[in-house]
Design a protein around this nucleic acid. Structure first.
Lengths: 340, 340
DNA sequence: TTGTACGCGTTATCAG
DNA sequence: CTGATAACGCGTACAA
């Protein structure tokens, strides 16, 4: 027999297909231990596997979770993917992934492709520019936003406690003696995350009466490095503290500083977001605001599952879950770059 | 109407479901431009989307490609995923991904889960330990191995030209004046890739009559670093050249060297595999053997598509494609670490 | 060129 | 506790 069907198993076990189906889904209406054993034996012996397409058609449930990632080159995203993958697998779900590469058009295309493929729910780490489409999608199936919000609101979001993390980095720099603080950002990055961190930074400065500013690097390496260099020189001798708003900016900062010499200019302190593997190597260790990617991933899948269960269980439009914002606390890794 | 079916579209357009189906799959037997337009209009107006589960059931084709990745933390893997994602999307396919995290048990589990989910084919970047299972899978559906081979052979493999890349790095070090060469590897990494690079390294040495050896770092940071330190000291003053067999080893090397000082000890030259973003920053730039991840990804999907088409088209056991080994040339990025 | 009718493999309903 | 039967939505011979 080329491909076993549930009917064949039933025949071999001397029961009806319905019973085998009940066995496969361990449904209420306990069956005799004897029938159960007979069915189990036949399935074991034949290596039968139910056809997913048929189940999907009948149950309109696929156990597939769609994931759209903005930038997989960012270690935050890859860590997230690993976390999502294992959390989903633990629930018997598989991941359908799409990488937008920060291209809104690709993101939009992925959105429809994944939905068309029949995913039960969607995890979106948006690159922006598709807020309406995402909100619309959230109206049709469970959607949980990852790290980056959409303007509309109304969609679940799981993110880090960015404000506290900013405060933690400011603390570290202040404790290391920095008198003047800069938050380094990139012009091309206008994500809500960057904005939130920038706002929190400004708040922290005014709350403590510290001097400082947000420095936006122009795009394209050279200009950015020049701008940075200028900033550092401008503050020379003033006990400057620098915070890179994300790992990419930190890398550009490192490049710029490398031109000034292998170690940090006297009195310059540094801290950054995103715990990249090289953070504990460069400059003898860089103080870092690390996000708890594993917990974030777990909560994302958990929340999505809740929504999926509601959709599956509920008949009409009853019991709509209210949109929820979930903040997962990260922590500060104190390293040599902010030691006194 | 809650959910449109092909029958509803047909009714609205005043044609039969079969015609709409033909339209959706642009099948032979061209239809009148007029009917085509009428159907298109109705679909456009209603926003109808065919149900994937039903098509899958009928056609036993899902347009899904399963991807199993050993280590997503490795930038090689994330770059690969992005490449696979876009190559697949270009062919109208989606990716079902699983991350094994170098755990053979998880890899085995992913294998069955993805196959059960009905993927048309499988891309496997194996962590080892499942050679039989993978070979068995390759007998049941199209499988293309990514970067890492299985012992059995008999399965398609797409990889880099590791031997030439090793030769290129040896060239670079020799040209920089290194008289004695070490290839740094990790004990825990016993992948075919590492072995291939180690063999090529030995061959290159003997071919050129150069002195050198393969140094295996013990696992666990401290011991490894100690061993490394020892090696470097042992060769002190002998114009040593170091090749890190992959990005992780290079990072550990960097740590060890950081303890000796911020710049390279006099006469020490370095080169590494894997073009991580920090490679052009550390030590003023590290000469790197970079793999062409985009091309690799494209060829993987292309090859997999070939196999899928054969399976779909062919009736019996005819026209089995012979297993193929595809090597994609990478290139050497010459940087400051191997300058004279 | 178009329509009719059947079956893909599974699950839900209902009766026994 | 178990079995018969009817869908789920679509593709495709075959007939017209």
């Amino acid at each position: 027999m080329a491909q076993m069907r549930i009917k064949d198993i039933a025949a071999e076990a001397g029961v009806s297909p319905a019973t085998v189906s009940r066995y496969l889904n361990n449904r209420p209406g306990q069956m005799t231990e004897e029938t159960r054993a007979r069915i189990a034996a036949v399935i074991e012996r034949t290596g039968y596997r139910p056809r997913a397409a048929a189940r999907n058609l009948r149950s309109s449930r696929t156990n597939l979770i769609g994931v759209i990632l903005a930038d997989i080159a960012n270690p935050f995203s890859s860590a997230m993917l690993e976390g999502l993958s294992s959390s989903a697998a633990a629930r018997g779900c598989s991941l359908m992934t799409a990488i937008s590469g920060n291209d809104p058009a690709k993101e939009a295309e992925s959105l429809v492709r994944l939905i068309d493929a029949g995913v039960d729910g969607l995890v979106v780490n948006t690159c922006g520019g598709n807020d309406e489409a995402i909100a619309a999608a959230a109206g049709r199936l469970p959607v949980v936003l990852l790290d980056r919000d959409v303007v509309d609101g109304g969609v679940d979001l799981v993110t880090s406690n960015n404000r506290e993390l900013v405060a933690g980095l400011v603390d570290a720099l202040a404790a290391a003696g920095s008198e003047r603080l800069c938050l380094l950002t990139e012009a091309s990055d206008d994500s809500p995350v960057r904005r939130e961190r920038a706002e929190a930074f400004a708040d922290e400065l005014s709350r403590r009466g510290l001097a400082g500013e947000v420095v936006t690097l122009a795009d394209g390496g050279a200009t950015g490095v020049g701008r940075l260099d200028e900033t550092i020189r401008g503050y020379a001798g003033k006990k400057l503290g620098l915070i890179a708003v994300n790992g990419l900016v930190f890398l550009r900062l490192t490049e710029a500083l490398a031109q000034l010499g292998p170690s940090l200019p006297a009195g310059l302190k540094i801290a950054t977001f995103d715990d990249y593997p090289w953070n504990h190597v460069l400059f003898g260790g860089v103080t870092t605001a690390a996000q708890d990617t594993l917990t974030i991933a777990e909560r994302v899948v958990e929340r999505l599952s809740e929504r999926i269960d509601v959709v599956t269980t509920t008949v009409g439009e009853a019991a709509k879950l209210a949109p929820k914002r979930i903040e997962i606390p990260g922590h500060i890794e104190h390293r040599a770059s902010t030691s006194r």
